[in-house]
Nucleic acid binder design. Sequence first.
DNA 1: CCGGTTTCTGAAACCGGTTGCAGGATCATA
DNA 2: TATGATCCTGCAACCGGTTTCAGAAACCGG
Lengths: 351, 351
Amino acid sequence: MKSKFPAPTPGRSGPRPGQSATLRMVAREAGVSASTVSRIINGTVKVSDGLKRSVEAAIAKFGFRPNAAARGLALGKTSTIGVVAQAIDSPFYGEGLRGIETGLRQRGYAPLIMSGNWRIEDEERCVQELIARGVDGIIVFAGRLSDAKLKGYAKSVPIVVTGRRLRAPRLLSMQIEDAKGSMLAVRHLLDLGHRQIAFITGSENHPDAIERLRGYTQALVEGGIDFNPNLVAVGDWHEEGGVRATLELLDSKSRFTALFCVNDQTAYGACLALYRKGLSVPHDVSVIGFDDLPSSTYRLPPLTSVRQSIGELGERSAQGILELIAGRRPRIAAPDVELMVRESTGRCPGS
Amino acid sequence: MKSKFPAPTPGRSGPRPGQSATLRMVAREAGVSASTVSRIINGTVKVSDGLKRSVEAAIAKFGFRPNAAARGLALGKTSTIGVVAQAIDSPFYGEGLRGIETGLRQRGYAPLIMSGNWRIEDEERCVQELIARGVDGIIVFAGRLSDAKLKGYAKSVPIVVTGRRLRAPRLLSMQIEDAKGSMLAVRHLLDLGHRQIAFITGSENHPDAIERLRGYTQALVEGGIDFNPNLVAVGDWHEEGGVRATLELLDSKSRFTALFCVNDQTAYGACLALYRKGLSVPHDVSVIGFDDLPSSTYRLPPLTSVRQSIGELGERSAQGILELIAGRRPRIAAPDVELMVRESTGRCPGS
DNA sequence: CCGGTTTCTGAAACCGGTTGCAGGATCATA
DNA sequence: TATGATCCTGCAACCGGTTTCAGAAACCGG
């Protein structure tokens, strides 16, 4: 009953030259059964010292590493966490992914990253693909997927989602304090004597953008200033949108001495546009961003920004998903926002 | 002979609420055998129309997606490509990873990304871990691992490595034309009348840094200028190193009117340091970077840089690894370097 | 109307680890 | 020394797909 079954010949590549060793090969080499080797590797039970030594020798000899697919199949887990990002190449996501990787690595998990490209259907495809790949959990980093869908998916796999507030079993959401961050920024500008403060938002219907706009208006009102819709322009979260929106603002009749941008990349664009128009930051216009990307420290001038430590958020997401997997109900919140004052903001010219 | 074997109870989580359907469940529902369902899904053989329809109905009903671990085990492949990056959060790698993901996605592969953190031992751990996870191939994006090790690993799995030239079976290397890029940059500066051109390198023993330095000296020599070691400073590939190195250069007695940096991030730091010292770019000093990161277009002033389309490099790496997996010997080279002239370079003040 | 194809379909082996159960060896106790 | 408790280890079932082989059904021409 050994091998009536002919070699399966997977694909056309044939048996690999360096074909990795199997558990049974190690077992045969060490003169024990596969179960014993497995138990030694996982430390499931104690085995006699002699055996242990010889098995370890055999493992070393073959350079054996248990096949993850087989192990995953048997255990029903893959030690892999799916991550849905939106654009793997944006500095924002880069930092978050680093945090996630760091958080997962130390527990023996690895991230399987996919990009949603800000498209709801791409995102959905990602989630399904990840589930099919049997990830043990999914982290949705700032997605667009509907709450209902997310809850539904949470039935088949634990989910951590950032950027919204949502309660469901086996799901953890972490909301950045967008409004609070905006208020910090605007208050800082008010303190500097600015009264005409413009705002460049992201895509108009994006929840984060909406919240940040809300914080902006609220802080203005608290400062006794009327909200002026002409001082709000629409960007696209990227530098390009920042340039465009800033030019629009400058072309409109409304004057402003300070500019608060929905994120740092938008602020970068804004600074460039101001520079093109011969305006100096912060002399003529103060500029504040949101996110505090690492490179903001090195802008000219260094950009004042609302810090929301994305890296930390990533690490916490990782921690959260692992807790969920362990069956616990984690109570983890996003890190606090905080204003990093640098050189792109200064006293209002006239004041 | 149904189930004398008690439920294995994987972990403590028990059977999941939304436990995904299995092939046999679908088969039972459709009144056929598992083999038939498998064949229909993979299109291995033709089946009668009626069966096909009812099986598809059953699949849809359960929302069935074949378990990737099981499939991987049976097929001996995982449709996953391991990627060893160095720092997932650097803009450089971000762009490369996007390219890789794009290239893989369309062929049904997904990247499993790990960070080597520029440490050779981390990198090695990554590669081993990836192999254990049964990836079908590995892309090493600008690594430090020795050529010999790499060749060794290539015996167990196809490898694409960027940033060096190396020939081995089942291995494809793609070398960026570092020296050529440097020469483009320096020649541009020479054309603008600069004669004192400084250079900030990366970590001193890094192959890319060495090559870029070589291109720099060669272009100088061709321009009839002696190489002056006092005009070379050491950075760390990051903004911080650029700042430090620039300050060192300024403090030294050697004057310079142009500054070529080993990469864009270093150039960002250099610009900041110049700004701090009251020097204007490009009025007092011209600055050129290398990589042409997306954000370089939006620097103040927009940075002149040697473009080496990392995204394209990533896509080609993806294409290369898939070719290797298919058993072919791809002939793919890195994209050409090209100088993007922007506003951080201008005519030499005195000329 | 029958033997020979051709086409489908199902049973079962297999991928490579994990683990419940049971049997043998070892040890302690009466 | 007999006997029950404790340890250790091997057998074999199982995870969930894939694939070979063989048998059944449908189709062919003679």
